[in-house]
Design a binder for these strands. Sequence first.
DNA 1: TATTCGCAAGTTTTT
DNA 2: CTTGCGAATA
Length: 790
Amino acid sequence: MSHLQALNEYQQRAVTTVDGPLLIIAGPGSGKTRVITHRIAHMVSDCGIAPYEIAALTFTNKAADEMRTRIERMVPDSYVWTGTFHRFCSRLLRKHATLAGLEENFSIYDSSDSLRLVKQAMEAVHPKDIRYRAESIANEISRAKSACIDAENYGRFALNALQTVTTPVYEVYQSLLSSSNAADFDDLLLHVVTILKNSPDLRQELDEHFRYILVDEYQDTNLAQYAIVRALSIDHPNLAVTGDPDQSVYSWRGANIKNILEFEKDFPNAQIVRLEDNYRSTKSILRVADQLIANNRQRKHKVLRTENVEGDPVRLVAFPDQQTEAQSIAEELSLWLKDNIYQPDEIAIFYRANWLSRSIEHALRTAGIPYQIVNGYEFYQRREIKDLLAYLHLLNNPSDSVAFERVINVPPRKIGKITVQRLKEFAAENRISLFEAARQSGLIDTIKKGAATKVAGFCALYDKIAIDATESVERLLQTIIDETKYIDYLVAEDTPEAHERAGNVEELLLAAREFDIAHPDDGGLEAYLEQTSLVNDVDAWDSANAAVTLMTLHAAKGLEFPVVFMVGLEEGLLPHERSSVDEEEVEEERRLMFVGITRAQQKLNLSRCMTRFRRGRVWPIIPSRFLMELPRSEMEISEPPNTHYANLVDGSRGAADVWNEHEMAQEILQSQDEDDVPFAMDDLVEQENSPQAKKTSAAKSSPDSSLPAEKPEAFNLVSAAEMLAGNGNNPQPSGLNLSAGQFVFHPTYGRGHVDHVEGSGKKQLATISFESVGEKKIKPAFSNLVIIGR
DNA sequence: TATTCGCAAGTTTTT
DNA sequence: CTTGCGAATA
């Protein structure tokens, strides 16, 4: 029982419960990873379970690698399968591809590949139909697949207009995928679901093989993933899942929180262990997290307790704009780093959306602070990288039409759209792949001789490259680059950008070489392509790198840092404008903030801006409603003097949108009965099943759900939600009363100084000298002014 | 066929 | 401010 040392009572229970279904509800910082690794080590070394009978499904490859290393360290030579769901399914699918109508060398399409295909399908179904954007339809298809609805059955579920339009597109899209011998991300899961359903023998065999299954971050699994683990836990229901409903932040991509909430229903004999002792954060950080998340109604009560020190108060700062926000953070970091108070790798900066990293990057670069941005995804999305990978895809899978179309004329070979169109038609008529059609281009009478010669040239190039197809990936890539003169093509325009692209190609070669070294035997082109297709952001993150980490809140899940900055805590950003009305979505945004807060071990710094540059304009900004839900009295708050956010709402464009959203939400809420008792689990389950789920759930939240627990004092920060809920007699602010000497901000003219005012209230007329356009006379009541100080 | 220009639209989160 | 797309031109 060596694996039980230094574990608390609950952790020990989780580790020693080996057989039968097990649910581990693990709060943030509760030592979950330790528990999982100890549990597996215990299973192998104390219970005599063979390592190959265990599969551990994690959320990121990074987490999988870490887990594998830790297990290896405890029990040498134990090969336990660890990896993500998508990788797990990809492996299964390679083995049993024919059962899903694929060949084993199928391509995996990322979202941009599949978007291209959706556009083609739309073009085929309704030419020039512009009622819906391809993105919406692609998203709808993805949603359906996550919910295990295939193209055949989708039509039966189509209720609204979007779904009706999607139905035929989905079918064509699926046939395009199949003729390209390709699977999109969702297919990886859905095909496996289908196989397990249609092949009972295989299902049984796999159930027997993976007798012990462990799923991490179970709150973020979707229906397809659920179906897979269920199917593999029928004869051997040794399914252990860990998760935390309060950290469920992926419902937008089909994750179903019901999976974890209903685990006990699925497995009536399930053991349940709660890990509630937090070993990560200070008491003050934890109280902030706890008070925030308490505002979620759809939630099981959970306590967060720690023996850790009280720690510094959580800080909340308001900045006039994002440059100041970024610079201030950079300045503070400079001081800390200079005095060695913290090391760069102990610090992280989180934000809601990727583009928010730009101003921070700029400030850090200027200040000479080393940083790393976590979005490896971006690298593989670059044009030059996608081009070269498309060549590899085409070599591995000549049916791959998306890859073919991508490279047929890159670098330019004077093969145009029309020729490709003709090839496509020919391919469709004769039910052959685009590439096969290209090989016969000389025989296609719609294609002119000149064009056919060029296409034949491309085929010859392909064959020349293909000689190296069984060489190392690096060598193959090098051959492609040489034969296509790809670098020359890139550097043709002699811009700095072009050379950066060339640099990226070098980086790709380097990565390929690393792959070759790491996979001397099990490598090969197919494995390399699988790896590059299934990378995620966090996988590229190097925790040992001596640099400040910049990442999105989503990417931060599962990590921890001594010092955390969270920026842009503003309405429209967190909660995001696209998730700020529907109460369920707002709760997910709140969980996202909860995740961010609970990453911090010692210091937590929250900030927001009063204006933000976005879409080519500077917009006035309302603070995030979540800031009102924190225990403000015990926090260290710096709000600027003389700011009247109430005035922002009046007539100001950006703020008005937010205002309207609050108002709409409010109306929905008030039109409902208020006799509902606080959230109960069964209610949630019922709601999800009913077609009116969304409406019903909105009714569950009482109108004051976003109100601060206690009235804020000593600051003049007022959220729109609070004003609405206020005394009801002040729905519209009465206009801005300026006084001479103030500095103001105007959305068009920018920053200005109030020289002179006459009158008051709505009739007030102010003379303001703007830095940009000089003196203007303005009626404050009717313009979008923000007072930014004196 | 390639390039260029202008316009429009859109910027969540990711396997 | 970016990016992608479509039409008009060389």
